[in-house]
Amino acid sequence: MSFKIESFDAETVVVTIGKTLDFRNADEFKNACQEQVDSGRQNFILDFSDTGILDSTGLGSIFSLYRKVSPSNGQVVFASISRPVQVVVQLTRTYKVFRQFPSVSAAAEALSTAAQA
């Protein structure tokens, strides 16, 4: 309910994370993404513009998504990261896995260029 998911193209969706991704809604996030994976999407742009809270359970649900799409070369990228999210990403060294972009459109552009290359 709290996750807005928009199609970008046949393979890519943009998920707006909203204010919070934590132990309370991590399952909801997982299920929402699973539906997208089942319908063939493999690139996920996560929009963190409004996100104030990302706890370890929330981050875990993003990791699960990554584990699902990475075997088929799918990608999970972060767009417009807020300060609190930046802290968590820094701490867990996950910037090594999730590419970061200043905006959703920059992320989308990078993903579509990669697809053409």
Partner: peptide
């Protein structure tokens, strides 16, 4: 100095 969290990437 630190590296990636466990359970995420087989090539870490």
């Amino acid at each position: 100095k630190s590296d990636l969290i466990l359970g995420l990437d087989p090539h870490a």
